[in-house]
Design a protein around this nucleic acid. Structure first.
Lengths: 256, 256
DNA sequence: CGTGAACTTGAGATTTCTCAAGCGGGGTGG
DNA sequence: CCACCCCGCTTGAGAAATCTCAAGTTCACG
């Protein structure tokens, strides 16, 4: 399934057959990576762009003293360092699971983008969505309580994985540790743990054994002040492979 | 000086004469706006993009209950809602000072971008820099102390205004209130006020009467863990109109 | 000289952090 | 097969950062 990338790009703009072919060329040479691998290093002067074909990863910045901020999570089909197209990268990306990536010389990507304007637009749009997600995280970290922030993160994870067809009912595999979650929302591990317990107790969601289980979507979304708009997910015309047991409404939280 | 936009774009990629002309066409019809005006509204279905020609502005998201997170500050020559090119906007932009903006139908911008790939690239790069700045803010809000965050904000403001030639020596006009700064770094007004006092007492910087004065750049940058890389400012080959009294080193803080 | 917005100050209340220790399961070497 | 160990999770408790509330103060402006 090297089509992961195509499938994902397709969500950001229709592609012609030729464009699809061009994308598949890019992803042709792929490489397996183990869980925990550094896929993109902050400081390497690498001239290559990295496409995530399979597996999950996260983007982060790490301060000299070890404090780490996770900036976002990546699902299959995403470009890990699109920024390299025009700028140097100033963050790292690590694999959360084992997976597969394609490594493409930036020059080649530039070339592809130049020959295929619509492809360029799809990628540009992808980077805009990325920025939109970052903004939402900023609001959380600056102005929301720990409780709301964690709830929001769980909402986002589930919504995105669901959009990628990676959920099963109210459940999805999300192979992060509590330390990862803490670094994502800007809390200490200890406090994050306590907040997770609160969410569990409140009957909203459960995160254990690298698996996320949504118990009450409406409640969770409302606690998180979650409104999926910012994800700019395609409005599912034909709903994805319908999840057997549960079907959640992704647009805006069913207000109380 | 409708050239503000051209001048700024130029920093993100060389433009041919024809491209420059295309940009100036976009900015041809401009409009004066008073301080405090809403330049871009979160929810309007407006089909127009807004270019800031003169004055300063800030981008923000405001929650239903009034809490507000400022997402970034805009200097002259920036596009306020480039995101509109491909997505709906999910934030607002308000004017900090009176100024002048150009309002361009999105369709027209799309067209321009389609006919001028290099222009497109410059804009794309601009949006990538934007995202890079957002990431740096995330690190601050998630993992830095209030003191470091405020110091960092002051560094960034000064660095960016300096790059735009809007500083005079160690001084620059920055017409925000303390409430704005608080909303930018995710602190309460009261606490922000106290942090500013600490910075003043420490002899690092002074922010008063809508003016920012840098007392000790190296010290401020080091307190902020500031490294200007993320701003992706062009390395000033010929240093800008040299500031009379002081010349700061922008690249990385002179470590202690 | 009155007014309002922005800024300052004080003090108690909360949230969140840090440190420190204990628990639990799965993998592994003996 | 078992004991041990490590990593991730959990718990407790005091400490620190930050918030909220509430009351001044300053200063530009009419």
């Amino acid at each position: 399934m090297p089509g992961r990338l195509v499938e994902n790009l397709q969500r950001y703009g229709d592609l012609t057959g030729e464009e699809r072919r061009a994308v598949e060329m890019l992803a042709a040479a792929s490489r397996l990576v183990p869980a925990g691998a550094e896929l993109v290093a902050d400081s390497d002067g690498s001239a290559d762009c990295h496409l995530l074909l399979e597996g999950q990863a996260f983007r982060h910045k790490t301060l000299p003293d070890g404090r780490r901020q996770i900036l976002g999570f990546h699902t299959p089909g995403e470009v890990l360092d699109l920024q390299r197209l025009f700028l140097s990268v100033d963050y790292g990306v690590s694999a959360l699971t084992s997976g597969r990536i394609a490594v493409v010389p930036t020059a080649r990507l530039v070339e592809t983008v130049n020959t295929h304007p619509r492809l360029a637009h799809a990628l540009w749009r992808m980077s805009l969505v990325d920025a939109s997600i970052q903004r939402e995280w900023m609001v959380g970290m600056g102005r929301k309580s720990a409780y709301a922030r964690v709830a929001h993160l769980l909402c986002e994870i589930f919504a995105r994985l669901q959009a990628s067809g990676l959920t099963t009912g109210a459940r999805c595999r999300f192979p992060a540790t509590q330390a990862h979650l803490a670094d994502a929302v800007g809390l200490s591990q200890v406090h994050l743990n306590r907040v997770l317990q609160q969410l569990r107790t409140a009957g909203l969601a459960r995160f254990r054994a690298r698996e996320l289980l949504i118990l009450d979507w409406a409640g969770l979304a409302s606690a998180a002040e979650f409104d999926g708009q910012y994800l700019h997910l395609p409005t599912p015309t034909v709903p994805r492979p319908p999840d057997p047991h549960v079907r959640f409404q992704m647009d805006r939280a069913a207000g109380p």
